[in-house]
C-alpha cells in the first residue's frame, strides 16, 4: 500500500481515491476513539462501559453514529443560519486535513510537505474558528461564553504547542515529517535531546490537551458551568462533527507527539537487530499507532483523574509558567545542539 504521491504527476482520480480512503479510515477511527474513551473511563470508574452492542460493545459507537445521523437537526430561530451551519464543517475539515501529513510508516504518507510541522500547527488552529463561529452564531449565552473561552484558551496554548515543537525542530533541522523520522534513526528525539526534550514533551502534552479542549482544560464545554458550552444548540450530525473532531484532534496531538518525540513508525532501537522492519515494512504502522494510542491513553487518564481548572488559572498557567519556561527551554536546546551535547545512538 504505497500512497506516497507526487501531486503534479498523479491525476484527480488518484487524489479522490486517497481522500476517500482517508475519510473512511478516520471516521471509523474517530468512532473507535470514542469507544476507547468510554471503555477507559469505565475502567477508571469501576464500571463496565459499553458491553451490549456487539462483542465487548465494539459496535456501540456505530449505533450511536447511526442514531445521530437519523436525528433531527434543531437550531435556534435567531441563529445566524449560514455561520451556524458552517461551523461544524470548519472544525471537522481542519482536523481531517491535519491527518494528511502524518507518515504512518515508510512510504505511507499522503502528503509529504516540506513544512510539515508548520502546516500542522497552522491547520490545527483553524479549528478554533469553527468553535468561535458555532458559539457566536447559535445565539445562546452559554454557547457564547464557551466560544469566547475557547478563543482565549486556544490562542494562548497555541503558543506553547508551537514553541515546544520549535524546540524539537532545533534538533532536527527540518520541518518535514519524513525527515524528522529519518533523523530519529539515531535515537528518538526525546533521547537525543534529553533534558530539554523531556521538558518540551511535558509542555507539549499539557498545551496539547488544552488545545483539544479536554479536561482538565475543558473550559469550553465545562458541563457543570456552561451546560454544553459552544455546541449547546447543535444536534444530530452537526453535533457529531464537533464530537468526532474533538477525538480526531486528540489523535492528532498524540500522533504529532509520537512522531516528533518518539520516533514515529520507527521500532524501538533494541528491536532493530532482529530486522523485522526490513522483511515486513508495514509493521511501522503498528509502532506508530501503538505509540499514538499510548499517548491518547495518557490524555484520557488526565481527563478521568483531574478536576477542571478555572478560566483565569488556565491563563495564568500558560502565560506565567509554561511560556517563559518554554522560551528558556529553546535557549537550552539551542545550547545543547550548538555544543553537540545530544545523545546519538
Amino acid at each position: 500500500m504505497i500512497l506516497s504521491i507526487n501531486i503534479v504527476e498523479n491525476n484527480m482520480l488518484n487524489m479522490l481515491l486517497i481522500a476517500a480512503i482517508y475519510l473512511g479510515i478516520f471516521s471509523v477511527a474517530g468512532l473507535f476513539l470514542v469507544l476507547l474513551e468510554r471503555k477507559v473511563a469505565a475502567w477508571f470508574q469501576l464500571r463496565l462501559g459499553p458491553n451490549r452492542v456487539g462483542p465487548w460493545g465494539l459496535l456501540q459507537t456505530m449505533a450511536d453514529a447511526l442514531k445521530l445521523v437519523s436525528k433531527e437537526l434543531t437550531g435556534t430561530v435567531k441563529a445566524d443560519k449560514f455561520l451556524y451551519n458552517l461551523a461544524p464543517y470548519f472544525v471537522i475539515i481542519s482536523s481531517l486535513m491535519a491527518l494528511a501529513v502524518f507518515p504512518f510508516t515508510q512510504e505511507f504518507q499522503a502528503f509529504d510537505i516540506n513544512i510539515g510541522i508548520f502546516f500542522l500547527i497552522a491547520i490545527s488552529s483553524i479549528g478554533v474558528i469553527g468553535i468561535l463561529l458555532g458559539g457566536w452564531a447559535s445565539n445562546n449565552k452559554f454557547a457564547l461564553i464557551g466560544a469566547m473561552r475557547s478563543g482565549v484558551q486556544t490562542i494562548s496554548y497555541e503558543l506553547s504547542v508551537g514553541l515546544s515543537l520549535v524546540t524539537m525542530v532545533l534538533l532536527t533541522g527540518t520541518l518535514q515529517l519524513s525527515e524528522i523520522i529519518e533523523v530519529q534513526k539515531n535515537g528518538w528525539l526525546i533521547v537525543q535531546g534529553h533534558i530539554p526534550a523531556i521538558i518540551a514533551f511535558m509542555i507539549y502534552m499539557i498545551a496539547g490537551t488544552a488545545e483539544t479542549n479536554r479536561a482538565p482544560f475543558d473550559m469550553v464545554e465545562a458541563e457543570s458551568e456552561l451546560g454544553a458550552g459552544f455546541h449547546t444548540e447543535y444536534s444530530g450530525m452537526k453535533f457529531a462533527y464537533f464530537f468526532l473532531a474533538e477525538f480526531i484532534n486528540m489523535f492528532i496531538i498524540a500522533a504529532i507527539a509520537a512522531t516528533v518525540f518518539f520516533g514515529g513508525w520507527l521500532e524501538p532501537a533494541w528491536l532493530t537487530p532482529l530486522g523485522i522492519a526490513e522483511v515486513f515494512p508495514a509493521i511501522g504502522v503498528f509502532w506508530f499507532l501503538g505509540k499514538t494510542f499510548a499517548l491518547v491513553f495518557l490524555m484520557m487518564w488526565f481527563r478521568w483523574t483531574f478536576p477542571r481548572l478555572r478560566v483565569d488559572q488556565l491563563l495564568t498557567l500558560e502565560w506565567k509558567y509554561l511560556l517563559p519556561l518554554n522560551l528558556l527551554n529553546i535557549v537550552l536546546m539551542a545550547l545543547i545542539v550548538w555544543l553537540g551535547l545530544t545523545i546519538q545512538i
Binding site: Q45, A215, A222
Partner: peptide
C-alpha cells in the same frame, strides 16, 4: 462535588 469541579470519577467512588 468532584463532578462540579470537573473530576468525573469521584461520582462513582462516592456511589460505590
Amino acid at each position: 462535588m468532584g463532578m462540579d469541579v470537573g473530576a468525573l470519577t469521584t461520582y462513582f467512588y462516592g456511589f460505590r
